[in-house]
Amino acid sequence: MRPIDPAAARALIAQAGLEDVFASYPDDVMVALEQAAKYNEAIGALDIKRRVPGASRLPEADQ
């Protein structure tokens, strides 16, 4: 897994509204960020067939 860039981490923390939590519990926030990065990377790497609920269809041209 690629290391998390500190600037990117700060942006993600701000986006999640977790600046105050980070100020009090920086290690906990970083553990969560790193774990989420692993899940994002793992899901991103999967070859996932696009499926939507109900009667919706995804045209081949879109794929």
């Binding site: 999640a16 906990d28 969560a32 990065a37 994002n40 991103g44 999967l46």
Partner: peptide
């Protein structure tokens, strides 16, 4: 704290792709 905050950083795209 560590385990719940993971959900703040999983992207919406990856959540739905999952």
């Amino acid at each position: 704290r560590q385990r719940l905050m993971v959900g703040a950083f999983v992207t919406a795209e990856n959540h739905l792709r999952a």
